[in-house]
Amino acid sequence: MMLAMFFLAAGVAVLGALGVLLCRNPIHSALGLVATMVSLAVVYLLHHAEFIFVIQLMVYAGAVMGLIVFVIMLLDIRREEAASSRFAPGKVVGVGLAGLFFVAILVPFTSRLTGRMGGMTESALERIGSVQYLSDQLFGPYLLPFEIASILLLVGLVGAVTLAKKKL
């Protein structure tokens, strides 16, 4: 049952990702990304990571993608402009980087899968996924990194506002 759900969600995620790459219409691409985000959220839920599931829905599928779709609609780009030549330097570099990334993903597969063999058993995941455990960790041992991350985000926000608005 869980396995079936996993393959369903993973399948939708892969299809969505393919859609992002193959769709000519930017809105369709963005929606493909939304589908990927939502199905990734389902995968998290299947791993008892309820908090991550909800944050994925809220931040990525909801807010971030909402903004992206909003901007695409605002700019009203109907068609992606066709690439000028078949082997543009950008394309070559992109394909090379994608290949490198693929190799990097393959490395853990060759050694050992997490899950059954590692320490992350189902009960441990259930514990880690709970909000209380997560917040105890975030506001306990990892308080400093957490605060640094929030300050980084704040700096990014202030930077964006100053760049966008010349006159405040």
């Binding site: 939502v38 908090f51 909800v54 944050i55 829905l57 809220m58 599928a61 909801g62 807010a63 909402g66």
Partner: peptide, 10 residues
């Protein structure tokens, strides 16, 4: 509660 907020975003 967060789930509801997430759905509101969708």
């Amino acid at each position: 509660l967060l789930y509801i907020l997430g759905l509101a975003g969708l």
